[in-house]
Design a protein around this nucleic acid. Sequence first.
DNA 1: AGCTCTTATGAATCATTGA
DNA 2: GTCAATGATTCATAAGAGC
Lengths: 283, 283
Amino acid sequence: MEITTDIYLGDSKEQLKLLPSNSVDLIVTSPPYADQRKSTYGGIHHDKYVEWFLPISEQLLRVLKPTGMFVLNIKEKVVEGERNTYVIELILEMRRQGWLWTEEFIWHKKNCYPGKWPNRFRDAWERLLQFNKNRKFTMHQEEVMVPMGDWAQSRLKNLSETDRIRDNAKVGSGFGKNISNWLERDKAYPTNVLHLATECNNKNHSAAFPEELPEWFIKLFTTENDTVLDPFMGSGTTLFVANRMKRNSIGIDIVPEYCEMVKKRLKPVELFLLEPEAVYEII
Amino acid sequence: MEITTDIYLGDSKEQLKLLPSNSVDLIVTSPPYADQRKSTYGGIHHDKYVEWFLPISEQLLRVLKPTGMFVLNIKEKVVEGERNTYVIELILEMRRQGWLWTEEFIWHKKNCYPGKWPNRFRDAWERLLQFNKNRKFTMHQEEVMVPMGDWAQSRLKNLSETDRIRDNAKVGSGFGKNISNWLERDKAYPTNVLHLATECNNKNHSAAFPEELPEWFIKLFTTENDTVLDPFMGSGTTLFVANRMKRNSIGIDIVPEYCEMVKKRLKPVELFLLEPEAVYEII
DNA sequence: AGCTCTTATGAATCATTGA
DNA sequence: GTCAATGATTCATAAGAGC
């Protein structure tokens, strides 16, 4: 089956109206933060942020499949010495709109922005808000399992008598079966804290969105031939990752230069299929 | 100067009224979470949580000095497949009460509770909400600096010729000076993500509040002879740490057994002064 | 003392059973 | 029905035991 990549130039609020209802499996995006990236996006004042975002999230709710999900990467900025409340207000408003606030993942940034202030430490985390349309959705947890650490190796080597007995009693089957159960236990399920580096090498786009981030959620929440949407495409990280992972993708951006650049970079698609997969780290 | 430790038995909302206004430098507490600890605290329903907490935070605002701060350890539970919104509603309500929401630290729990569910990962973080009365407050950042880890060492070992030349050019001095500059760089300022284990060894109290948590904030926000308050004392971790660090402290708890236990354990105070300090980890 | 190995145990979440 | 109680699931730590 052919994998498609569609790029729309324009305002997300308007361009989203062109998409059919219930057609997208996963939305992953990092919208322009309040008062940030003024040169490219015009900058949304923090007092107007919720008001600005709600018409867009309304469209996102419409285009998303009932089993789909929406991952929103966002972090409130400091205004007059306080963390501003527009993000938590947005959560409350989106719930009124019909979204379910299923989970809040933490992106713990390995190499956060440097700096020093008299009454504030460096900000090393961002929110990854997971919203759903429906309580029922599918997670491919085994796709994002992480190495277990030292524990498993020593455990494996010294499989105790107690462990064998417990396992035997549970599955009620032969000994060999149990051993293989334990042997497969070299990986553990991750937690809701992601520990990833920020991307430093992307000079063309001001937002640092590492490939691992969309990759993790695409693995977790979609299968091949599903459709991934990023309504604030930027440099197109989400689209490239989706393409490499054989997911259809849709990107929207208001900046013509970004749309052109992504289109150009998408041409030699075949190359991406040969790239090694990213490695996740547990800490 | 004598260090005092006062323990009040009773409901925080009422007991706090006995304290004078503007008398506390730091409040650090971990209130009972919604629907938890029913056997000891009765359990507060998630729908009533904000309503229950606001009269207490009103008193806390009164007793806190203008330059003081309030660190609230809390995490919302899952209700019907969604993260419940009582915590973020509480933030909004406390701001209406007059609090400034200065920062949200993340406590990244090393050993989070195990378990597996079809559409949720293990919860490995909690909020540490910092509230202030005033924009002006003092942070003793150098008190909580952390060892730099491998980064500094490897940098040191592989100091390239370019680095040496550049360094020489910059400071305009001899080679030895530059090396010593690097050697002094063994500590770094922390970020707003704390990576601590949960306490497992406290048999008498169900809440896992590691000593490192209050210690970190006491170091950061107070000096000797300041006053620290924990309106939900529990097993008294905050008080013991404060005492060891020569801060006055006040604890309130509604459970008589906890008050008795803490009083008993506070008797041999001198012993605490000899204990080694906790070591923080940067990751 | 050091090292390895063993065991208990959580501020969790979900589905199911019982009142 | 609605609400409360129980069992199953699972992993990073620390304390304890053994050498």
